[in-house]
Design a protein around this nucleic acid. Structure first.
Lengths: 160, 160
DNA sequence: TCGCTATAATAGTCAGAGATGGTCAATTCA
DNA sequence: TGAATTGACCATCTCTGACTATTATAGCGA
């Protein structure tokens, strides 16, 4: 099974064991694995994305390099908060709970469903920097709200 | 006479004798039995479903595979722990859905609740430039799983 | 020495081929 | 008649190679 990509991914992660970032030469790495240099880009593009918690920096030309930085979940100076803000749409937990409570009051969701929704947007469910939690919460909540109304359409709901 | 499907089912179960999960190549297996590859899907879809206590995970492309995981348990307190363990720190959407399907099949959640859960862990709910979509999904899912079992304790569930 | 340029040394992008697995409708079988 | 089987077509993942973009530096002339 051990695909080339998997090996390269593993290799890079082992190199990073000791710190939060490393610098490699794309060509050296490719040679080490006996593959095309662009294969390195492929691995970086599929396994070291922002979604995976990494940021890639590089430089061409003489003395060029590829730097792989592992993002920190907390702490200042990570790209994460910046990106999240750009996405916009944000809601604090209290407001989210207020909305869910309203849904329950109106009997649009059952008590159990409301609890599930609260669990999904709860502070501890969203393992992100504080400022980011609201953003993700907004996204998750919106998706669930849409589902609530789809549920209502599909079949009536009378119980609580 | 043993149907092909039965033989394949038997074969897979023998392979699993030694552990709770195996990985196979769909095409290899098909070749072994001299049948169409889609026949393997048929067997998996009819004999290794969540209500049979199995979860299927797979991957396409070079180095692709089909992984068959047995969920042996009874006793729901145990099931929660198992599921939490299975979710781990990171989980792709398909696997999360498989677990939710399992809950639904075992009637531990209602159809609407299952849909809500899927909405909460859906790709587009987490499609933000945040770190590790899979990691977030795992976190959200685990929180919801715990809630599911709390809901069960609090009050019986009879509807679907 | 100061600029400028050519060249070497890097890395990035993208389209396409190959390798898998998935789906679904039609057909066959028990 | 329902389960089993197949095959055509689709989706996804890897990997490569040709072509492009960027940067450092050596060499050269003013």
């Amino acid at each position: 099974m051990a695909q080339l990509s998997d090996s390269i991914e593993q290799f890079i992660k082992e190199l990073m064991d000791e710190g939060s970032q490393i610098e490699v030469r794309r060509n050296e790495l490719a040679q080490h694995f006996g593959c095309a240099p662009s294969q390195i880009n492929y691995v970086l593009a599929t396994r070291f994305t922002v979604d995976h918690g990494y940021i890639i920096e590089s430089r061409r030309g003489g003395g060029g390099y590829v730097r792989i930085v592992r993002m920190r979940e907390r702490g200042e100076g990570n790209l994460l908060n910046m990106l999240l803000k750009r996405v916009g749409n944000s809601i604090p937990e209290e407001n989210a709970c207020a909305i869910i409570a309203h849904l329950l009051d109106r009997k649009l969701v059952t008590a159990n469903e409301a609890k599930l929704m609260r669990a999904a947007v709860a502070r501890n469910a969203l393992a992100l920097p504080v400022s980011a939690k609201d953003v993700l919460r907004a996204s998750v909540l919106k998706n669930m709200l849409e589902q609530v109304f789809r549920n209502l359409e599909g079949g009536e709901r009378h119980d609580v």
